[in-house]
Simulated assay, not measured.
Amino acid sequence: MYRAGMAQAAQALIGDSEFDRDTAVTLREPGVYDAELSAGWTIIHAVNGGYLLALLGRALGDALPHPDPFTVSAHYLTPSAPGPAVIRTDVVRTGRTLSTGQASLFQYEEDGTEVERIRVLASYGDLDALPDDVRTTALPPAIPPREHCLGPSDGPAPQIPGSSAITDRLDIKLDPATVGWAVGAPSGKGEMRGWFGLADGRDADPLSLLLTVDALPPTSFELGLKGWTPTVELTTHIRCRPAPGPLRVSITTRNLAGGFLEEDAEVWDSADRLVAQSRQLARAPRG
């Protein structure tokens, strides 16, 4: 079990970090929120899908009576760009233990036309009210110690066109067995594993887990494909509140067919608990 935190000059706190500022929403009127998509979370051609999921997750957390996302399913309709956005939420149902809502994020074209970027259906509850009973066959991913894994400064930068601004906001150390793509020697396996944290040291919470499931390089890189891997649909399950410290993320793809691939992600915390799971369907790069 890995408990040592990552070295940080001044660790940011939950609620007072770059992630929190960049996922902030402002209530305009009941159910309608204004937001600003930060250019700091872009990758290749668009704003990262996990960041967008966290942004809508924050709006839904304000609109619904329960505090924590349990399951969030998103359909990505058009690529998002840095700049102003509007989020419209709707409470579908409220119950004693769960509440369900939907939300859509809109941006505007140059001619003023409103375009829907992403639509979400989510159920929220209270993670602190869940029972402690755990029965599982799942095991944490086998990842070398963090000091033996590789980050952006440990080798030549891979030649991928477009923005990589998001990498400056993340602290990712990848399993060497999954970084052949970075030196032109992909393994051919649809696997990506690594240690994950935010660069400013902010600990994980249920909202940031929505970013975590979509923050590692896509498995398509290890399949020998370069370029943007746009998400079509992403469903995330938050299983429990993560303990402080770095996370371990494992992502696998078993089937690329018809120009689409699936990615199954697991996120484990420093207490060896499975804190989040996800599955997404993505369009394979054309490279």
Rank of each mutant, 00 (worst) to 15 (best):
R28K: 14
D16C: 09
I44E: 09
N48I: 03
Q107M: 12
S208R: 01
R146V: 13
Y76H: 11
K189C: 04
A185R: 15
Y51T: 02
S187Q: 01
G227H: 11
L256G: 07
R88S: 07
G155V: 05
A122K: 11
P82T: 05
S153V: 03
V267T: 12
A215R: 00
I43F: 15
K189D: 05
A177H: 00
G201Q: 06
L207T: 08
S270E: 04
L216R: 08
T113C: 11
T136K: 08
H75E: 11
T137S: 14
G245C: 11
P158I: 11
A185W: 05
P242R: 13
P218T: 14
P141V: 03
L209T: 02
L130N: 04
P186K: 14
R286F: 04
D214N: 02
G190S: 13
R202D: 06
A103G: 03
A74S: 15
L274W: 10
G49R: 02
T78E: 09
A199E: 03
F19Q: 10
R3K: 14
G101C: 01
F221W: 03
G180H: 07
S153F: 14
I160G: 14
D269V: 06
W268Y: 09
L127C: 12
P246I: 06
G155T: 09
G258V: 02
L211K: 02
T137D: 15
V134D: 09
D168Y: 08
L274K: 06
E116N: 09
L211G: 07
L37E: 02
L170V: 00
A81K: 12
L211V: 04
F70Q: 07
L210Q: 02
H237I: 05
V72C: 10
R21K: 11
P244R: 05
D171T: 04
S73E: 15
D264A: 12
A276G: 03
T178L: 03
G287I: 00
C149N: 08
A63V: 00
I87M: 12
H75A: 13
L37T: 01
T231R: 13
V134E: 11
S123W: 03
T100M: 14
L77C: 01
R146K: 14
A81R: 14
F19R: 05
A74N: 08
V115F: 09
G190K: 12
S163I: 08
S164I: 05
L139N: 09
Q280T: 07
R119T: 12
R239C: 08
L281G: 08
L261Q: 03
M192E: 15
P145L: 15
F19S: 10
G287Y: 05
G61N: 00
L256P: 02
T231M: 10
A185S: 13
A35W: 00
L52V: 01
G15Q: 11
S163N: 13
P244C: 04
P246R: 08
A265I: 03
A257K: 06
H66A: 02
S123M: 10
A10H: 11
A24P: 01
G40R: 15
